Computed example of a mutant assay.
Amino acid sequence: MTRTLALAQDAEADALLDRDPLALLIGMLLDQQVPMEHAFWAPSELARRLGRDHLDAREIAGYDTDALITIFATPRALHRYPKSMAGRVQTLCAAIVEQYDGDVTTIWRDVVEGRELYARLVALPGYGPQKAQIFTALLGKQRGVTPTGWREAAGGYGVDGVYKSVADVVDPESLGKVRAFKQAAKAAAKEAAAGKG
């Protein structure tokens, strides 16, 4: 089952995520040290600044690096760390061009095993184990990409009825629940660290 995405909580930005898998992959890459909605809004603003209605891995991979940094840094900046994130997005796009001929859907289109999907995602530049698990869960829960064992490959993020990550955000209410979960986890980690000191 594919559901209409509501990750940016912005109609135009979410519409791009819905129709452009590269935008979704880039949004997930950017989802660190900024609010989730900002990370998933950024791909649509990147497309607008490039004068496009979608994102193209070849174009971004071959783009002048300094010019791309400027695009990221122009207010409203696409990320809190525009220089490093422009570089990460460019590196990700270069890998997609090199390994998947520029077609991001090839990463998951013919995958039959969840662990293979996870392995492909975790091998992407900028995607660590947690990000790869969350994106596996997002594909399964909201994009209809459900190879055998995808929930197991996604770890705790693949469980139904939890509000742990972007994979569980479908509206403002679920976003609030995910945010509350993350804050509680952060507080618990802080408390545990203080206990060790």
Rank of each mutant, 00 (worst) to 15 (best):
T2M: 12
T4R: 15
L5K: 08
A6Q: 14
L7Q: 05
A8I: 11
A8H: 09
Q9I: 00
D10K: 11
D10M: 05
A11V: 12
A13N: 07
A15K: 07
L17A: 06
P21I: 00
L22S: 09
L25R: 04
I26E: 06
I26C: 10
M28R: 08
L30M: 12
D31V: 02
Q32S: 08
Q33C: 09
M36G: 14
M36V: 14
A39N: 02
A39Q: 02
F40T: 10
W41D: 12
A42F: 06
A42D: 06
E45N: 09
R48T: 11
L50D: 07
L50C: 07
H54K: 11
L55D: 07
L55I: 06
R58I: 11
G62S: 12
Y63L: 14
I69A: 11
I71F: 03
F72Y: 03
A73K: 14
L78T: 02
K83P: 05
S84M: 15
M85E: 11
G87D: 14
R88M: 14
R88T: 08
V89Y: 12
Q90D: 09
L92N: 11
C93S: 12
I96D: 08
V97P: 06
Y100E: 05
Y100H: 13
D103A: 02
V104L: 00
V104S: 07
T105K: 04
I107W: 00
I107Q: 00
R109T: 08
D110C: 09
V111I: 09
G114Y: 04
R115C: 13
L117N: 08
L117H: 09
R120I: 03
L121H: 06
A123R: 10
P125F: 03
Y127E: 03
G128P: 11
G128L: 04
P129N: 15
Q130H: 13
K131P: 05
F135V: 01
T136V: 05
T136H: 05
T136C: 11
A137F: 02
G140Y: 00
G140M: 01
R143T: 00
V145W: 00
T146E: 13
T146A: 12
T146N: 13
T148Q: 15
W150P: 08
E152G: 11
A153M: 07
A154W: 05
G156R: 14
Y157E: 00
V159N: 11
G161F: 00
V162M: 04
Y163K: 08
V169N: 02
V169C: 04
V169Q: 05
S174T: 15
L175G: 10
L175M: 13
V178W: 00
R179W: 03
A180S: 12
F181D: 13
Q183S: 13
A184H: 14
A184C: 09
K186V: 03
A187H: 09
A188N: 07
A189C: 02
A192R: 12
A192D: 03
A193S: 06
A194P: 02
A194G: 02
G195L: 02
K196F: 05
K196V: 09
